[in-house]
Structure formats: C-alpha cells, structure tokens
Design a protein around this nucleic acid. Sequence first.
DNA 1: TAAAATTAGTTGCTTTTGTCAACTAGTTTT
DNA 2: AAAACTAGTTGACAAAAGCAACTAATTTTA
Lengths: 307, 307
Amino acid sequence: MTSTTSKIRSFNRFYTAHLDILSQHYLDSEYSLTEIRILYEISESKTITAQKITEILNLDKGYLSRILKRFLKENLIVKIASEEDKRALNIKLTDSGNELLSVLNTKSENKIEGKIENLNSSQKEILVDAMKTVRNLLTENKIAREAITYRHEITPGDVGYIIHLHGTIYCKEYNFSTDFEKYVIKTFYDFLEKYSPENDRIWMAQYNNKIVGCVAIVHQSNEEAQLRWFLLDPAFRGLGIGKRLLTDAVDFCKEKNFKNVFLLTTNMQDKALQMYKMMGFELTKSEQVQEWGKTFYEERYDLRFIE
Amino acid sequence: MTSTTSKIRSFNRFYTAHLDILSQHYLDSEYSLTEIRILYEISESKTITAQKITEILNLDKGYLSRILKRFLKENLIVKIASEEDKRALNIKLTDSGNELLSVLNTKSENKIEGKIENLNSSQKEILVDAMKTVRNLLTENKIAREAITYRHEITPGDVGYIIHLHGTIYCKEYNFSTDFEKYVIKTFYDFLEKYSPENDRIWMAQYNNKIVGCVAIVHQSNEEAQLRWFLLDPAFRGLGIGKRLLTDAVDFCKEKNFKNVFLLTTNMQDKALQMYKMMGFELTKSEQVQEWGKTFYEERYDLRFIE
DNA sequence: TAAAATTAGTTGCTTTTGTCAACTAGTTTT
DNA sequence: AAAACTAGTTGACAAAAGCAACTAATTTTA
C-alpha cells in the first residue's frame, strides 16, 4: 500500500512536468516566467506595491526592483507615489502592459486548450471539479465550513444519491449488507408515494455539488412526525453539519406545530445518538433485533414539544 | 461564466505557488531543485544515460554534464561505460546517493504531511482521488479505455448510485422530473425483492471507483428475460463501454438459454436505440404516452435467439 | 517626543543557474 | 568508406537570483 503522502508526491512530480510543458511557450516571448508572474500579479490586484509582490511571489526585493525598473523603461507599468506611505510606490499596468498580458494569456490558453481538446464538455467538468477539490483541500488544510451549502428541494438524482450514501456508509461503518440498502430503497419509495411538500421535508448538505449529509422529517399525523435518514459522510464530520441539519429539522417541526417527533435508530450509531440527545431526544424504547447481517438494539427516541 | 481554460489556468497558478512552497526546503540542502530532480530520475530508472535525463527533464546536455561531474566527485553516482554504445555512460546512484535521496524524501514528505495534517482519512482519500482524476484526464487528453473496469456483483451503494445516475442523466438529457427517479426506485425495489443471483445480473462499468455505466438482465420466466437500466454517463460515451455492457448482457442470456430478451425504452433515447439495433434488437411495439413531464413513444424491442 | 527599530525600495556586487557552440569519440546511414 | 549523426565534455558567456549596504520614510518604545 502506498501512503497518501507518496501519492501526493507522485502527483506533484507529474504536475511539475505538466506546468513545465505549459510554461515552455514563455520562452518565445522575451520575458521569463517570473517576470510574467509579476505582471500577472500586478494585473490581478489592479494596483499593488513592490513589497506585496515580494510577499506573494517569494522574490528578493532587489531582484524585483530591477525587474520593475525594466518594466518601467519598457512602458509596461507606471509607479505612482503612495499617499499613505511616502516610501511606497503603487504599481499599475499601462495599456501596453495590459495588452502584452492579454497576448500572453491567449497563448497560454491555446496551450491548455491543446491539452484538453479531446475531452468532451462533461469530462471537462469532471476535470475542473477535481481541481477545485484539490485546491479546496490543500488551501484550507481542511474542509471549509463556508464551502458547505444547504438546501431542501428534492431535485432529480438526490434520492438515489442519498440511498447510495446509506448503502456505502452503513456498510463501511457497521458492515451492513446490501439488504440494508434494499430496506432504505423501500422506505424512500413509501415516502415519495405519500410525499406532501407541505408537511414533509428533506435537508441536504453539499460540498462541491455532492451531497455529504442529510436528514428528513416525515409527517405521521397532524400531531406527530418522524425524523429519518439522518446521515453524514465520515469525511465531513466535526464541521457542525449534523447539528445544522438537526436544528433545521427540529425547527421545521416546531413551525409545523407537531407535538412530537420520533426517530428509530440502533445502539451502534454512537455519534448520531449523541447528537439526538443534544437536541433533546430521549430514549423511549429499545429492542434487540437481528438484521442486515448484524445483531443490535433497535431504539426509539422521542422529542416532545411542550406548550 | 468563466471558461474551462481560465479555471485551469487559475488552478495552475495556485499549484505553482503550492509547489514553490513545498520546494522551499530544498534550499536547506545544498542541492537545487534541478539537481534533486536529476537524482530522482536516476533513482527511478535504476540506471540511465545522461541523454535520457536531458530528454525527460528538458535540460541542456552541457549543464547536465557538469552537474553529473559534481555528483561523481561527491560520490553520489557512478558512471559505467555502456556495453552497447561506447559513447554512452550508464549512471547509477551509489549507496550514499540513495541515502541522500531518502533523507530528502523524508523531508519532502514531512512538508506535505504538514499541509494535510488536519484532513481526516476520508478527506485524504478524496484528495488523492481528485488528483488521480486530474492526472488521468490531463495525461491521456481523454479517458483511457484501460481505466474503465467492469464488474457484476452488487455491493452496498451500487443500486443507490445507479438510481442517482438515472435521475440526473434523464433530467439533464430529457428533462424528466423527479417522478422518473421515483419510478426507477420502484423498479429496483421490485427487482431486489425477486432477485435471483442465478438468473438475474447487473453489470457496472467504473471509472475511479465510480459507476459510469450499467445494464441488467432480469428473468421473467425460464424462456424470457428483460434487459433493464441500460445507462451511460454522457462523459463516458464513445469509449465502447455501452457495447461491452450490452454484449455481456446478451452473452449472459445466451448462456442462461433464454429464448427471448426484450426491453422497454422510449423513442427519445436515440443513442441507446442505435446500440440496441446493432445488437440485433427489433422494434415490436410502440405506443404514445405522457409521463414524467413529457410526451413520447414507449417502445418495446425484442431479441430472439434462434436455435 | 525624540531616539531606536523597522520598513519600502534602490543599487552594487556576487553566486547560481542555465545556454550556446565547438570539440572528441563513437555510431548509423548512405 | 565517407557523410551525417549522436553521447558526452568543455570553455565562454548570459540570465536569473540572492545578499548586503544604503536612503528615506514610518512605527515603536521608553
């Protein structure tokens, strides 16, 4: 088994070579890669100081100073004395600087285009998504809470994906067999048969357009509702997603004036149980069963809204 | 809307900076990044000629020659006269060369480890998978046929994912509503209820551990079977996956001695229809229906095995 | 509030890195 | 067997990058 780190190193070597090939076209121009990165940085921030550039690109200030001097002579940039700090100079691209950059951008884009010309649009989407994931994970060194989005309208593909998550996660964590997924399919079919947008709702948490967590409220009567399908991809635990989903679900119950919400679970779901209790759910029933290739306790929890 | 190319360029800039940071530790050692890449190349191929290195790393041969001279003096490599070509020299790492590289590798791994220390194991998996996808798509400039794997045992999560694919793809391509997905859920529930490993089978095509295409054979009697759920992710069409799946399915029918296989589809599925016809299926029934938010023809195709 | 420490930017000098062309010695093509 | 080519070396040189000392302005500190 190769470790994560060595796989990443292998990718790094691959991407170094890839970037090398892409940057080769800069040799046609009279500017080095560093010079172009500097121009790009100036263009990105509209106006910037030399100091800032050294920070962003990790350059020696003496080296940068000379490069900027050349840019000035070639009329690619202007230096404007800063008002706030009389030592500093604000650097901007001139029209011809912008023009140069746009020519180089076009060249670079053509080069990239050549690298992906045989991919169809769906494949390009896959590529861009994967890059986004890599970037997200490496930038934050974690999954950013802000990158998680929430919604509660059922769109095509949602229910299938939620079933899929149930199948994979319960197999991975509790070694449940495919029978469990079959059971989930049945519960969803029954749910969709009786689905009332007014009294039922599914909440989904997404990351990179993929569902990573969910919960639902299913009305049983005007008085009572069931909380179902509470699930969180293990990769996305500890980010407050579960709490947010449960809170939304319980708030919905209050809003709809249910007197009682219950849920059925097993004693194995330790992390979920903890959250249920935190939300005020209390154990009301416990019974040993043998199902989906396992022996465990099936438990009922209730949350009663007092008026 | 930003184009694919500009998103890729943005990722390239991000990753350039990322690699820059990782390579900074090489400054601690007395070797430059180029020198280390050379050492790495030698280590990778066990034995290699200078010529080959210049090709792989795009280096000037004069420059390389001098670096190798230094490596030789420092006892990192040995040069062995080639038997086949007396001009060429086979280069190998010495023990101390290997040792140096392993020290540097450890340092590099530590640096990477620091970049991902806050990710849990599932998140690391996501990262590595995404890198693999990026690499696959950029290397081949296409999805490699060899990267597609096939299997036909149902494991947890499969059926949910196939339902998900039906929901999303039929919505994307034919604008079907969520009712269609509900219908698919029902068909799968019924299938799983009666599932006989002996007479029924689902085939799945996978890319990067994700299902991208499927088909199933469902027995109706000893004489007749139904071909169902034939589906291919648009990103993976034109790779021969559909043909492979259908061939496997039809072969299975022959093997099981069904006299007849039929399938139900719509006139809208033009690409699938073409493939069915290619496999020998013939239209036996056509009827206008209104369902899932659309009006279309529901069609039956039959393939009869003659003895 | 004045001295001390720090910072933005420039410049001279040096090292490192990389390029080019000419050369030797062996190999392949014609 | 001559001509064209290739692997590798070397000298001369240019480009890229780093270091340190300096000016002038700003911030900190006591």
